[in-house]
Computed example of a mutant assay.
Amino acid sequence: MATSGYRELAASLRTAIRQGEYPPGATLPKQDELAERHGVNIKTVRQAIGLLEAEGLVTPIRRRGTVVRERPPMRRLGAERYSKRKWKFGDTVAFVADREASGRSWKLTDQTNTVRLLSADPEVAEALGLSPGAPVYERARLVKDGEQPTHTLTSYYRPEHVEGTPLVEPTPGPAGRGGGFAVLTLQGYEPDHMTETISARMPTPDEIEVLNLPAGEPVMVLVRQTYTADDTVIEFARGVHAASRFAWTYTFTLPD
């Protein structure tokens, strides 16, 4: 039966993708072939493909055509990824925990590292209990899964907490064994609890380029404040994650 309308064509292709007729990494038939098969014109096919692209199911790749996006996404274990047994008593930093939970291979240089001393913007200043414009260390990372960027994470610290430590060295990868939390612990600022706030929005042009995002894909934004047992804030972090590249999982005890 001929398909009438781009929404109906999109629904047909969506079903075929989800049922495995077009598996991850497969290329959809050419647009003229789809038009002939479904009894529609090229404009309708383009509209249908555009709808699937906006949903994050497919992405156009030059010289290949319309490609079904890879799944499943990376597992991001909420509280478990910060377990002290991983970084305090082992050497598994948070991004490595995600990859191990997802059965992915990894290497320490999958995380880049850029450090600079700068003036705190109002959000960073408020989070760290400083005046706007006060000096802070910024540690910006881009994290990849193989060659595919998954997210950026930028942390901010009071200089007196991290001066002279591996956290302010530009070496790619984590800040030594156990990463940044282990460094803070050695400085006398052991992480004890944190607050994470997660929201979604459309990416900026820079984020589209850095994360290699297809058209229409949103980002998940994580804002994190980390504290010692006596409520001293020791880190403020902003993370920007490609929405389709993560599944966020939280396991917790229900409060009384």
Rank of each mutant, 00 (worst) to 15 (best):
S83E: 04
A97R: 10
T171Y: 14
P72I: 07
G133L: 08
P174I: 10
G239S: 12
E80A: 15
L57C: 05
S155F: 00
T152C: 03
T3E: 06
A242T: 04
A54C: 00
V240C: 06
D121M: 06
T197R: 15
N113Y: 12
K30G: 07
N212A: 08
D192G: 12
A48T: 04
S155Y: 01
Q19V: 09
I208Y: 00
D256P: 14
M1T: 08
F236G: 14
Y6P: 02
A2F: 09
W248Q: 00
P218N: 10
T114F: 12
R104D: 01
A229F: 04
D192F: 14
A35L: 06
I42P: 01
D110S: 11
S119P: 01
S12C: 08
S131F: 01
A120N: 11
L153H: 03
T204V: 05
G164E: 10
L254F: 00
I49R: 13
W87R: 10
V67P: 05
R18W: 01
T44M: 10
E209D: 07
D91L: 10
L153Y: 01
Q187T: 03
T232H: 05
R71Y: 07
T92K: 12
P122C: 05
V210D: 01
H38D: 04
L52P: 04
T154E: 07
V219L: 05
T251P: 02
S102T: 07
P218D: 05
V221Q: 06
Y6L: 06
E36C: 04
R18C: 02
Q187K: 13
L34R: 08
L184V: 08
A182S: 13
G20H: 11
I42D: 03
R224H: 03
A247Y: 07
T171A: 10
P72Q: 11
P218H: 10
G146T: 07
D192N: 15
G103N: 08
P73I: 07
